[in-house]
């Protein structure tokens, strides 16, 4: 009778997920600091009241934008891309940084793709009807 030895198991460490408060635009969050120079602009004044006003404005603009994405889900959207490429597809989802759009039934000159990701950096504009 052999008792199984204690075989050391390697520990798989997953990267730490976002904690509950660090997902938004808190200027002290690691996320804000990582993005701040490239994608989140601020008047940059240290005044607390100004910051508050700016945050309020940001919230209103952002909420409207997120709701516009929500309204677009399931609709046919026409995309104008660089180099005179025009495609249309049914919009499904976007990531929070607006870097990629996930779409279905992407109609391209070469045929239809059932599922696709569009890089927002390749898009000039998109249009849909409500």
């Amino acid at each position: 009778w052999i008792t199984p030895g204690r075989v050391p198991v390697s520990v798989l460490r997953l990267p730490r997920g976002p904690d509950g408060t660090s997902r938004g635009f808190d200027p002290n969050s690691p996320r804000y600091q990582a993005l701040s120079s490239s994608s989140i602009s601020t008047a940059g004044s240290g005044n607390r009241a100004d910051l508050e006003r700016e945050q309020q404005g940001r919230v209103e603009l952002r909420e409207r934008y997120l709701r516009s994405l929500f309204a677009m889900a399931g609709h046919t959207v026409h995309f104008t891309m660089y180099e005179r490429v025009n495609v249309s597809a049914s919009f499904d989802a976007s990531d929070i940084d607006i870097l990629n759009f996930q779409v279905s039934n992407l109609q391209t000159p070469l045929g239809v793709h059932r599922e696709a990701l569009l890089r927002c950096s390749d898009i000039i504009s998109y249009t849909f009807e409500l």
Partner: peptide
């Protein structure tokens, strides 16, 4: 916009993250 595209309309919002 880029490649001389032009658009007219009423501004509903501007996304503060992407500036769309």
């Amino acid at each position: 916009a880029a490649e001389k595209h032009e658009y007219k309309g009423w501004v509903l919002t501007i996304d503060p993250v992407s500036a769309n």
